[in-house]
Nucleic acid binder design. Structure first.
Lengths: 163, 163
DNA sequence: GCTGAAAAGCATCGCCT
DNA sequence: AGGCGATGCTTTTCAGC
């Protein structure tokens, strides 16, 4: 089957893409420097950045901090299976782990009733305690943890395609 | 090169912690606004930020972009087991996936010879292709993929403890 | 360590091409 | 759409506390 829709006027042109790539790399770059790098002057560059922010393409800017230097020596993933796929159970689980500061990410997995979580812990004892809290939580059927011992890659953002 | 950190006294005081919490939330906040929020004037606030950057506590700043709006409709994790735990095999695998733009994170897992990867794909066909590329890569023994269908939480940075 | 003033640089607006 | 020039803020340095 052929592709259905003809391409609309590209919402993002080449300059927008370069802006996004630059700001994903250094989100605190000044607008003047950004404009210089993408080859336009500062005012239209700022207009483009604002437009990208308002369109939701840029959702925000965040400092990237070193977990170990802040006392989070352990990072681990947890794959959590629930006993039910009822919406109310899923929602309750998301709400619970959403309130735990150690849970940094929570994604529902295709297939039903499973989640993958990314967590930080101060040390192994803390990790064990968090795992026990997960295992013992309401509606949790099984928990598998994967402790990371080395991060070979941790890239910001997503690839910006050349198009 | 080796550097011995001479830090037994609290390297981070209460103000530093508030600076980190604010910049994790909004990495593009002006220094004047940051200083106002943490209750000091701008010059010492800027000095503290520079010190945190130079100490490696702040590793960088990144724009947070919307994957779906940039054409990455699928996010998934892959748990990859290798056939060997030899260092040269582990290194070769890390180097290979490190060069794939679709691989956003690659963590070695405790237990030996396993990795967890976070990837983005344009669509399900692209996801399948990436999975096949992983499965067929040198030294890869098994691949389990977990496609995310909903992200309930995706927090920036790490918790800043009150201490 | 902090404050305050001052110089340089930046963000941002209005207007023009 | 992009660029130029003007204005007000912000950043940054430098004194002095």
């Amino acid at each position: 089957m052929r592709k259905t829709p003809p391409d609309q006027p590209p919402l993002l042109d080449q300059i927008d893409r370069r802006i996004l790539a630059e700001l994903q790399e250094d989100g605190r770059m000044t607008n003047v420097e950004l404009a210089r790098r993408v080859g336009i002057s500062a005012p239209p560059c700022l207009r483009r950045v604002r437009r990208l922010e308002e369109a939701g393409v840029i959702r925000g800017y965040h400092a990237d901090t070193d977990p170990a230097l802040l006392g989070w020596q352990v990072m681990f993933f947890a794959i959590v299976g629930l006993e039910s796929q009822k919406q109310s159970v899923l929602d309750a689980f998301e709400q619970m782990v959403g309130a735990w500061p150690e849970v940094r990410e929570c994604h529902m997995i295709r297939g039903g009733g499973d989640f993958i979580l990314k967590l930080v812990a101060r040390d192994t004892a803390h990790e064990n305690e968090l795992t026990r809290r997960l295992t013992g939580a309401a509606s949790v059927a099984r928990v598998t943890t994967l402790q990371t011992i080395r991060t070979a890659k941790d890239a910001a953002g997503v690839p910006i395609p050349p198009e």
